[in-house]
Amino acid sequence: HSHMSHTQVIELERKFSHQKYLSAPERAHLAKNLKLTETQVKIWFQNRRYKTKRKQLSSEL
């Protein structure tokens, strides 16, 4: 499990705020920019979407 830097997370968050789903080319581009693997980016987005979904569910209770 590799640790992401604060800067990388900020960039991922910024991208996520604009779009929740990335196409393969977008993911490849973002990964390259942030010096991450595409898998890391993919998993981060999956986890981030899951967290957002959970938060929405709990706020509706």
Rank of each mutant, 00 (worst) to 15 (best):
K51F: 09
Q19D: 05
E11L: 08
S17P: 02
K32D: 05
N47E: 11
E11D: 03
R49W: 04
S2V: 11
Y50T: 11
W44M: 02
S59R: 05
H3K: 13
S17E: 13
Q8E: 02
V9P: 01
L61V: 14
K20M: 06
A31Q: 01
Y21F: 08
S17M: 13
E60L: 15
S59V: 11
H1D: 09
P25V: 12
E26C: 08
S23C: 06
K42L: 10
V9S: 05
R54N: 13
L61W: 03
R54M: 12
K20W: 06
H6N: 08
L61D: 14
Q46I: 11
K53T: 07
V9D: 03
K32H: 10
E13C: 15
V41L: 04
S23M: 02
L22M: 04
S59D: 14
T37M: 03
R49D: 01
Q46R: 14
Y50L: 14
S59T: 12
T52Y: 14
L12F: 01
S17C: 15
A24V: 07
K42Y: 07
S58N: 13
I43H: 09
R14K: 12
H3C: 15
E60Y: 06
L12C: 05
I43A: 06
N33D: 11
T37W: 03
T39K: 09
R49P: 00
H29Y: 09
A28S: 08
S23N: 06
T39E: 14
K32I: 09
E26G: 02
K15S: 07
R27A: 09
L57E: 12
K32L: 13
A28Y: 05
E11S: 06
L22W: 03
F45I: 02
V9I: 14
H3V: 08
E13K: 06
E38N: 06
Q40D: 05
L61G: 12
R27T: 10
N33P: 00
S59Q: 12
K20I: 05
R14S: 07
F45Q: 01
I10D: 08
K51S: 09
F45H: 00
Q56L: 14
E26P: 00
T52K: 09
R48T: 04
W44V: 01
V9G: 01
L30Y: 00
E60P: 06
Q19A: 07
F16Q: 02
K15T: 11
E13F: 07
